[in-house]
Design a protein around this nucleic acid. Structure first.
Lengths: 205, 205
DNA sequence: ACACCAATAACCGATTCGGTCAAGTAATTA
DNA sequence: TAATTACTTGACCGAATCGGTTATTGGTGT
């Protein structure tokens, strides 16, 4: 594994992205080490030189993604935001940015949730626990509902926004390129529209 | 192919679902005929007895899905609905119902959009054209916007609902069972909330 | 007892699998 | 420059799997 870490940052990223993409697309069993090597433009032998085995590579990717998720956590610092829509917007922006910088991480993480291969079943626990606690931190708070014309609308609107987020993710999953700013603007405008129509007049700054 | 058509309806569906699921999950190249045979609880030899070759099986599935989509078209008869939300609700209900009855069809169709295998590239044109014209029929009409407090909100709200639909699809993709009525109720409530907050008073029946 | 037929176990050559290794090449050291 | 070291990879391994074929099986009707 030290062999891999000693590579240039660019080469490491090329290999990581190739592996994330292949595992994300095919799943553990159907993704072959050769697939990944070809996508990374290196020899299959080097892959084994760097990671030892297919399983060790997969585990490395799991831990790598764990780090990425933790970074998203930190940078979003949701605690400071008092408004529901601001919190949703901030966390979405962080998610989208990291998705932009590391296009295959999200695809890989999504695939992990559907992974059923017994060979890596033991290793899967690592990621799933982390990911769950993410949403708990930005969960709807009691005071959020008070800003709504109909406070009982707060929860459904929150759920709708989560749903839209999954919609965006599905729409751009596997797309090799997309305009980050356009999508983010789109989402921001949608949030503004919802806010304008659901909030009491007094909370429309 | 006549061999396959002569089977009991139940056995045919078991085989179709197995094939849709495997191709949907793995893509054309990575899904093996053996995977499908095992999932369908029949021998691999029978698969070739029924369909001749892997490619012919895939093409059969494409045409089968085309039929399913056409049925959804017919049953929804969107022309009769004058209200935007009613049209969205009706088409979503149809989509969800057929998703419920034939759980792997949607997964397969989704995968077709990402299919890159050259071996079936020629056959893929069949489905993609059909699917595109689907949304054109329920596209936002001019008169829909007039019901909104802010007519310029109509288009974004329509886009948001499409996005939510993709979100639902992504959330339940690959789930082997889910409560159809619960999900549909959820969506229906969301639509009611949007309607109440976005429509002018006079259009709230 | 026979003929018929759908289903499959066993098999085909070819390819690919995860993984190894020795030869080649570039970079370092002396 | 010669020797040494570190890195990369083409060629290779046995085993498994690939798409596809064939010979045998067990069941059914007569």
């Amino acid at each position: 594994m030290e062999k891999f870490l000693a590579l240039t940052e660019e080469k490491k990223m090329t290999i990581l992205n190739a592996a994330l993409q292949c595992f994300g697309k095919f799943g553990y069993e159907k993704a072959s080490v050769n697939d990944i090597a070809v996508a990374a433009h290196i020899s299959k032998a080097s892959m084994f030189q760097y990671f030892g085995s297919k399983k060790q590579l997969y585990i490395y990717l799991l831990e790598y993604c764990k780090k990425v998720i933790e970074e998203i956590f930190e940078k979003a610092h949701l605690d400071s935001k008092t408004d529901l829509f601001d919190r949703i917007l901030a966390s979405s922006r962080m998610e989208m940015e990291s998705f932009q910088n590391q296009p295959f991480t999200l695809q890989f993480i999504t695939s992990v949730w559907e992974e059923t291969s017994p060979e890596v079943a033991d290793a899967l626990v690592i990621l799933t626990e982390e990911a769950c606690s993410f949403r708990n931190d930005m969960v709807l708070r009691e005071e959020d509902a008070l800003k709504f014309k109909n406070p009982e609308d707060a929860r459904p609107v929150f759920q709708m926004l989560l749903l839209m987020g999954e919609g965006y993710a599905a729409r751009y999953r596997g797309a090799n390129a997309f305009d980050f700013e356009t999508v983010m603007d789109d989402f921001e405008k949608n949030i503004a529209i919802l806010r304008k129509n659901f909030y009491k007049e007094e909370y429309l700054k």
